[in-house]
Amino acid sequence: MTDTAVQAAHTADAAPVAHRRLRFNILRYNPQDTGSVPRMQTYELEEADGMTLFIALNEIKEKQDPSLQYDFVCRAGICGSCGMLINGRPTLACRTLTKNLDAEITLAPLPFFELIGDLSVDTGKWMRGMSERLEGWLHAKGPEPDLRRLEERMDPAVADQVYELDRCIECGCCVAGCGTARMREDFVGAVGLNRVARFKIDPRDRRSDEDYYEVIGDDDGVFGCMSMLACHDVCPKNLPLATQIAFMRRKMVAIGWKK
């Protein structure tokens, strides 16, 4: 496009355009308030260019209803706080553009996690429990290294692979989208299996496959997964969850037949 053409296009954009009137049906419920019962509440709002649900919800809270509860922290898709059901699908509200949705939008809190109120759920509590259960931290080899000496070398490609799995933001969308987790609340979820896979490929971690079997070698772990793969399909970070779960399953089954 030539400079003038672009300019023309944008000046045209600047002219007032008729915006849609959006209707938000939001699940309201405050479990802290004994008088509160779950109900749907509707808010109307005029759409704006480039409006995300972050912008829309803030406008509703600032202008219409200061009691509306929801969580945003980074609002840039990196902290994982704003997972919610948008028209039934778990995803990050901060990076959901209203223009990609119908004018009627239904918002509900992520299921599975403890509800704090309205759209706000306590994913942190569950994630902590999951991490404690799976021992989701690096188990270093040997004694503490002398930090004044050069760091242990690592293959650049392996470092990149580890990072690829470390990109998980623990938003909880995978667990909320998981049919297994919905039926069996002790299931560790894709987030947990991905976590284990991350340490498994990290050469700095001393744990063996037998050790990982101890934490995910049962029906609450990798064998509970029924491969519906909604986790993979809803993951806002596009993590390779399907292949990672398959990878862990192969490794863990190998342990099962080793003896």
């Binding site: 063996s208 037998e210 050790d211 079997y213 101890e214 070698g217 089954v253 099962g256 037949w257 003896k259």
Partner: peptide
């Protein structure tokens, strides 16, 4: 295996190992 004791420093050494049957059943 030797890594049992050090798996987390949380006394797993005394615990029974996890059953291998879930793996076999899955397979």
């Amino acid at each position: 295996n030797t890594s049992t004791e050090v798996i987390a420093g949380v006394g797993l050494a005394d615990q029974a190992r996890k059953s291998l049957w879930p793996a076999r059943l899955d397979w």
